[in-house]
Write a protein that binds this DNA or RNA. Structure first.
Lengths: 191, 191
DNA sequence: TGTACATCAGTGAACGCGCGTTCACTGATGTAC
DNA sequence: TGTACATCAGTGAACGCGCGTTCACTGATGTAC
């Protein structure tokens, strides 16, 4: 073979990673196929050697966003005692760093409304990613029972995602911080 | 004149109202100029007799969405005693009806991430609409001081917007309701 | 009162442009004999 | 060992198509004289 056996797989993964970042920066229908390929050091024509359609790329890129989120949170919780973990997540999620860098942040804030309007295939795939996230994160959420932790996951995650979405549409950093701080302080103090 | 003096104004308002609904259903860059004009019983060519550009329509349509939201909430609170008003808002916002009808619902859930990526003119205009909403709604939010009510507005509004955004990307009605109910029950019980 | 002209919301075809997708081709490296 | 052919990731031009925008035109009604 002209390339190492894993070459094609690695190229595909590179494209998906670049698409995942571009999607969160420019929106679900923001980046064109050409722009994603260029960001990966390739040209448009090669795209269909890796993907059956642009939708296939979108689905994979959304999944990539979720898995980056899991990884980021998982690795930052390594040295945090179990009962403090949800607080660490809240602090990171509602930080100016996260708010100001959508491209490497949570895909739910950035893409949820657009995914809700997307093709059923994409919505179904995202729904199962969302459920997986709920199950994984619920275990370190506050609450005495599994039901309570699940409910608190939805409360905390909804509040965080909503807060970042609202903060991001305010151009003034001070206004952004006021929204983020309101929700951060409330969640940390009241749960 | 060939038309009544108010004819042009009314036509423009009709276009804006139709655009406001279409935007929330199909996204900020979903409906084309032709489709909005058609929905208003007109043809593409006439568009630039009313608007300088599509962006001008978008800005007006977003504002229209906010004003419909204010009106809807204002009129539903007429007969509700002041201290119960925020609960009424929570119940409506987190209802399946609202969740299942984005076109006539809150523009923040549907459009926030796309507006955050839009031109600065649009972002600035939306930011001031958002602040206006915060000021108007804060007065009937729970809390002893103005500062507390403002903070609680951001907490409640973030949680509601996030919950509806997440619920809407789940295709199963039962899953949607679980998210909505979690946040609804929590907010009504704990604030 | 009648005729010529002005106004202007609305029409519909045309314009570039960027998009997703297709396709004939390239060129480095493998295999067959 | 050398030559002919096969493979296949990647190239770049071309394709329809829908978009925002432009523009010459329409036709109902106003005003001037």
């Amino acid at each position: 073979m002209r390339y190492e056996p894993e070459h094609k797989t690695r190229t595909r993964e590179l494209i998906v990673r670049n698409a995942a970042r571009k999607l969160r920066t420019e929106g679900l229908s923001g980046p064109g196929v050409a722009s994603v390929m260029k960001a990966s050091g390739l040209t448009v024509g090669g795209f269909y050697k890796h993907f059956g359609s642009k939708d296939e790329l979108l689905a994979d890129a959304i999944a990539q966003g979720f898995s980056e989120l899991s990884e980021k949170v998982h690795s930052s919780l390594q040295d945090v005692p179990p009962q403090d973990r949800w607080k660490e997540v809240v602090r990171w999620y509602l930080s100016p760093e996260h708010c100001n860098h959508p491209g490497t942040g949570c895909p739910v804030v950035t893409l949820a409304p657009e995914i809700a309007r997307a093709k059923l295939t994409i919505r179904k795939r995202t729904a199962s990613l969302m459920k997986e996230l709920a199950d994984t994160w619920a275990v370190f959420m506050p609450g005495g029972t599994a039901k309570e932790r699940e409910r608190n996951f939805f409360v905390i995650f909804s509040a965080m995602a909503g807060a970042v979405a609202i903060a991001r549409l305010l151009p003034e950093p001070a206004d952004r911080e006021r929204v983020l701080a309101s929700v951060r302080d409330y969640l940390l103090a009241s749960l």
